[in-house]
Amino acid sequence: MKSAKTPQEVHALLAAAFNTKDLNVIMNVYDANGIIFPEPGKEVSGRAEFEEAVKSICAVPGVMEIKTVYCLQSGDVALGRSEWTITDQGKTQVAAKGMEVMRQQPDGNWKIIIDHAFGAEANLVA
């Protein structure tokens, strides 16, 4: 199974995994012990809830594209800022600006430990 060898590869790997709709490939991009915000204000953690959140994202029809705005790394931790879309037949289904924290795993690969898919939206209030 393909893994990200650098934090800069994580966004492209996540988009490719989403586009296969293969839950195992998508889950391999994440550390399921982390957290994901699949929608504003909704925090999900724990493997079962994490998988359900990923399944709901996979249910959105279309192709995901993720643009890496930046990726800052310090040792085995990195912060990514992304702009992502899911389009279907030329129509945008979802578009957002996200933030992701990634950690290098003991095997050297990088996984997302915090995925705030809407975390960089200008109107998001804590």
Rank of each mutant, 00 (worst) to 15 (best):
S74K: 14
E43D: 12
H116N: 15
D76P: 12
F18M: 10
E100A: 12
L13S: 02
S56V: 01
K55T: 06
G34Y: 03
K21V: 06
K21C: 05
S45C: 10
Y30S: 02
V77I: 12
D88L: 00
A96P: 03
M64V: 09
W110R: 00
G62S: 10
A4C: 02
L72Q: 10
G80N: 04
V29L: 00
V63F: 14
I57L: 15
E65L: 14
A48K: 13
P40N: 10
V101K: 12
N123Y: 11
Q8C: 03
K5V: 05
A17W: 00
K91C: 00
V101D: 05
F50V: 06
D115R: 07
A59V: 02
G108N: 01
G119Q: 06
L124W: 09
V125D: 04
A120T: 09
I26W: 02
M102F: 02
K5Y: 00
W110P: 06
Q89A: 06
E52V: 11
T20E: 02
S82A: 13
A16K: 04
N28I: 00
C58Q: 15
N19S: 04
H11Y: 11
N28E: 03
V54M: 12
D115Y: 04
I36V: 09
D76Y: 10
A15L: 05
P40C: 05
E39G: 07
E51R: 09
F18N: 07
V69G: 03
T68E: 12
N109R: 06
N28A: 11
V63E: 15
A32M: 10
G108A: 00
A96S: 13
T92G: 07
V54C: 07
H11A: 15
E51F: 06
F50D: 02
K67P: 04
I57K: 08
E39R: 14
P106H: 09
A59G: 15
N28R: 07
I113S: 09
D88N: 15
V63R: 14
N24Q: 14
H11W: 07
S56I: 01
D76G: 07
Q89G: 08
V63M: 13
K111G: 00
Q89Y: 07
I36N: 04
E39I: 03
N123C: 08
G80C: 03
A96D: 06
H116G: 14
L124S: 08
N109Q: 10
E83F: 03
A117F: 12
N19I: 04
